[in-house]
């Protein structure tokens, strides 16, 4: 498969199949990230579709020195926030709405639901840094690039987010079980 820059150059010229290769490469990440923000799978795919459309129309604005996935994440974050605002949907997770690669046991599902529920209670600024850090495994520098803020801000927000999570998850931590 060609590298991203070659595919982008071809897509700028109107080659949809080249853009299709980019979609194939990044759809997992983008749908996953959209899911964390929109709260359910159906909305996540709608958001991801909108993200790729926006990316296609603005490919020439992509700066080559940046990472393409970081650029897509930034579009995803903005699109998902607008989508949620427009639809006025509450960012909650619907268990039955998720399709998994594999079956997970009940304990892992419960643990996942507990963490998700706590995450939903965080302000968007704190939630977003944790989503990018914990689910998408971005470095602080990459998160700063996505959210257009300093690394110090990312560091501070992650610390504050964990502090809040610690309070929300205290009942489970105090039970002596590691969540």
């Amino acid at each position: 498969m060609d590298n991203d820059i070659t595919l982008i150059e071809r897509a700028i010229e109107g080659d949809k199949s080249a853009f299709g290769d980019l979609v194939d490469k990044y759809k997992g990440k983008i749908v996953g990230a959209a899911f964390r923000f929109s709260g359910n799978y159906k909305d996540a795919e709608d958001v991801a579709q909108e993200v790729f459309l926006k990316a296609y129309l603005n490919l020439a604005k992509f700066r080559k020195e940046a990472d393409f996935s970081t650029w897509l994440y930034r579009i995803t974050y903005n699109t998902a926030c607008n989508y949620v605002r427009k639809k006025k949907i509450k960012m909650t997770t619907l268990k039955d709405d998720i399709r998994y690669e594999d079956e997970f046991d009940i304990e892992r599902n419960e643990k996942r639901e507990i963490v998700r529920a706590a995450l939903e209670k965080l302000p968007l600024k704190l939630k977003s840094v944790l989503v990018f850090r914990e689910y998408e495994s971005l470095s602080y520098k990459e998160i700063a690039g996505v959210l257009d803020c300093s690394i110090g801000t990312v560091e501070s927000r992650i610390s504050r987010a964990r502090e809040k999570l610690k309070v929300l998850l205290r009942p489970y931590i105090l039970e002596g079980e590691k969540i």
Binding site: G32, Y100, E101, F104, V115, Y135, I179
Partner: peptide
């Protein structure tokens, strides 16, 4: 904090 961090790793990959 490590315990909280590890809880996030339970998320599966999504089948698009």
């Amino acid at each position: 904090l490590k315990s909280i961090k590890s809880a996030f790793s339970c998320e599966p990959d999504y089948k698009v």
